[in-house]
Design a protein around this nucleic acid. Structure first.
Lengths: 348, 348
DNA sequence: AGCGTTGCAGCAAGCGCTTTCTATATACGA
DNA sequence: TCGTATATAGAAAGCGCTTGCTGCAACGCT
């Protein structure tokens, strides 16, 4: 049998109530009594029953972090930062919270189900990371769930995801559009006029915003875009490789390839190299996110740095109520253009 | 107020017991009744109270996954695979489990605390990934916790971590030693005799085993190792960069650098390049793990592929009781040598 | 027709904790 | 010295669910 509060109480010769109070430290207990209780806890190797505690107190110490793809460092970095602030273990004893990261794999159903599961667990807070899926019914369902969660006392923070108006969720959005624009401006500034674009999966806010930024830049410089210059793919290397091959097949005269993110950009680099093209002499390549490996690419990748760790940390603090929410419940986080070796002037 | 089981029961004109049984599907309920109940659940938008359920049933649907560094794809890939098998949402409805990944950051205390937290939540299963910390007191404490968890009915699986004898935990270990040996054999086979080694953090099983494999290979070929040829660092790129600089400073005549993992190897490549050395003409480099980005490095990285996803999936299945544990409760997973562009014959 | 089965639903007793309210003891001021 | 504030501990009522057991029809058997 497992040890219960009552066992500890018996051993310490106090009432269960007192033990509970010692453990929670939210009520005055005489020092001598406290010690006796702690000793008993130790001797019996007592571990609180989480569900029972959560039930009685109507609160839980679970904090959920939803990510699209846990194997992608983009999310890993954010999750790590969020978790760091949640305290998880490592904070002062007692106030321990179990930060749990849930991998949706980009699937709408899983996203929703995880939210339900967290709602079921009466999670203290939930942080949703990464772009949202742009499907009206799904979005409505999500918003509804978020509203329900908040109603039930769960704090909801969006990190790197667009605001969800009228849900009450706090949003820390990334300025994907601005970043995308700046990146393409840079390429145009170098003299590029024929730019391929490898977009992420359709129906994703991140995909759309980055692409819009790219197009804004083109439009601002009077460059008319050829529909053949845009290909959609997934946010991974493989996809970038294939898309680049396709792009160059469609129009070998392209002088630059802008990728939806760094992984895709790396795939693009590989494809270009395998096609016998030099970077950036023949074709310039640009990514997005500035993940750690991007500066190690050869040549190192020109990209837009997103302060993933900082944003995640902030989201975590807000979720824990340790930092004021931004005015209006929304803040936009800017990216920073990192010009490196993979972009240069176009070939003659 | 939130909706409770009783509310649903009232609305469906049945007893709470019946509602519970419909929801759990573990007791015969007439079809007509079931329908009425489900309708009520739907109309009231009822969400089960997880803690209450867990308390009453003395079981939980939580499955914990402990990782050392969630921002590292090595762990991300395993976690993703494990989670995929846990079912998480996405499996058939009803049997939903909340797979939670906990980031220990490599800290012994956090590792232990997370285990306590999971014990507190009465987790259904726990998967511990990655190398263990080789500190006797900590190991003892961990083993004790694991034993307690198992005693309490939690299934514990180690994935990529050495067996913990007498704890009852199932282990899927990686053959780090064999992999390390094979890798160094390869380099020796190419003609290298002066090899630098960038090891991971000390007091880690993974670090030790890989290094031992390396030394086994050297010894097998009668190569005497110079103590200056080994440097310890962290498992990240930065560390690899610095360690390589140090290594080349200590002995510029080294013709190969073997890194503890791929991230470190990438850092090594960067350092060598920055020192004006060509890879592999001047110095060969080898990594370990074969993470996705490794083949994109220029030159692509010679490394040892660990079947992270496969092992994770298997660990997940075992944790869920959907796959037989290996005989003896332990299985060793081999790595596969991937010879690529970063290794070549030594310079004259 | 009588009676053991079988199928389905309800009763009610907890699961192990938290917390309000109450009790006791001690300290204080008048 | 008495009344009242102050500090500390206990009693007990749940929190919302699960489940063993009981109840009661309808059924099939001899």
């Amino acid at each position: 049998m497992t040890v219960t509060l009552a066992d500890v109480a018996a051993r310490a010769q106090v009432s269960p109530a007192t033990v509970s109070r010692v453990l929670n430290g939210n009520y005055p207990v005489a020092a001598s009594t406290r010690e006796r209780v702690l000793k008993a806890v130790d001797e019996l190797d007592y571990v609180l029953n989480g569900p029972a505690s959560a039930l009685a107190a109507a609160t839980s110490d679970l904090v959920g972090i939803l990510v699209n793809d846990i194997a992608d460092p983009f999310f890993g970095i954010m999750a790590s930062a969020i978790q760091g602030e949640i305290g998880g273990p490592g904070g002062r004893a007692g106030g321990e919270r179990l930060a749990v990261v849930c991998n949706t794999g980009g699937s709408p159903e899983r996203e929703l189900t995880y939210l339900t599961l967290l709602q079921r667990q009466r999670a203290a807070a939930v942080v949703l990371t990464g772009g949202a899926i742009e499907d009206a019914p799904h979005k409505a369902a999500m918003d509804m769930k978020v509203r329900k969660l908040i109603e039930a006392g769960t704090r909801v923070v969006l990190c790197g995801r667009p605001q969800a108006p009228d849900t009450g969720a706090i949003a820390l959005t990334f300025d994907n559009r601005g970043g995308g624009q700046e990146l393409t401006e840079h390429l145009i500034g170098l003299g590029h006029r024929r730019l391929g674009y490898i977009a992420g999966p359709e129906e994703r806010t991140t995909t759309r915003h980055r692409l819009e930024g790219h197009r804004d830049a083109l439009a601002a410089h009077g460059i008319e875009e050829d529909p053949r210059w845009t290909v959609h793919g997934r946010y991974d290397r493989r996809s970038g490789y294939e898309a680049t091959l396709e792009l160059m097949r469609r129009d070998p005269s392209l002088t630059a390839v802008v990728a939806a993110n760094d992984s895709v950009a790396l795939g693009a680099c590989a494809a270009l190299r395998d096609s016998g093209l030099r970077i950036p002499e023949d074709v310039s390549v640009a990514g997005f996110d500035d993940l750690p490996f991007s500066m190690d690419a050869v040549p190192s990748l020109t990209t837009v740095r997103l302060p993933l760790a900082e944003a995640g940390a902030r989201a975590g603090r807000i979720a824990m109520g340790r930092e004021e929410a931004p005015p209006g419940g929304i803040a936009s986080v800017r990216g920073e253009l990192m010009v490196r070796g993979s972009s240069g002037v176009p070939r003659a």
